[in-house]
């Protein structure tokens, strides 16, 4: 069974992410130690929390996460975990991992924030993570900020809320989703199953 490490920033609920990753066939560990991260077959950066606080907690792990990513193994960020893949965010000062080019913006004020609830996706650039998903696939979102990418090719899927934003991003072995796959019923589990299958390859 492949080992996945969930990086713990000690703020939000990782119970459901743990539960969902077990369901799709991972051995799950919640880690914030370098050697454990480097031994993992996959790494997940979970959601919930504030960009500034999370980027501080993540700062000591920046080098090891970079080393991990350069080894070619899979990384998946969800919600805030996805936003941390970028360099910075309008939510607060602090540096993200800068693994995908772009920044994180706040929704403009003509829509209710947070964007909370179920919304669908449009596939922009297919990759294996999207296997079995379509425009009828609904996911659960809770966020007030969204990523704005520099390269359109890194946008795997988009969603409309007031404006169109990147809801799934993929660049080689680095992936992120703005929604919570662990809270998105069967469709969310499908995405995590795809992630598990890609890990085993």
């Amino acid at each position: 069974m492949p080992l996945v490490s969930i990086i713990d920033y000690k703020v939000g609920n990782i119970f459901s992410m743990e539960n969902a990753l077990k369901k799709v066939g991972f051995r799950v560990e919640v880690n914030s130690e370098s050697d454990k991260i480097l031994q993992s077959d996959a790494v997940v950066l979970p959601g919930v929390g504030n960009f500034r606080v999370a980027s501080q907690k993540l700062a000591p792990l920046k080098i090891v996460l970079n080393d991990y990513v350069h080894s070619g193994r899979l990384l998946l960020g969800s919600c805030l975990g996805m936003q941390l893949l970028f360099q910075n965010s309008e939510e607060g000062v602090g540096e993200g991992l800068n693994l995908i080019e772009g920044c994180v913006k706040k929704f403009n004020s003509n829509v209710k924030t947070p964007h909370m609830g179920w919304n669908n996706i449009k596939i922009e650039n297919y990759n294996e993570l999207l296997d079995g998903l379509s425009e009828n696939s609904y996911f659960y979102f809770v966020h007030s900020y969204y990523p704005l990418l520099k390269n359109g090719d890194d946008v795997a899927a988009s969603t409309i809320y007031g404006e169109k934003f990147a809801s799934i991003v993929s660049k080689n072995n680095i992936h992120g989703c703005q929604f919570h796959p662990e809270k998105s019923g069967k469709t969310g589990l499908r995405l995590l199953e795809n992630f598990a299958r890609m890990t085993r390859k």
Partner: peptide, 12 residues
């Protein structure tokens, strides 16, 4: 709460 949460894959 934990027992219910374990069975769910939707927000709770």
């Amino acid at each position: 709460v934990k027992d219910v949460a374990t069975e769910l894959d939707i927000p709770f």
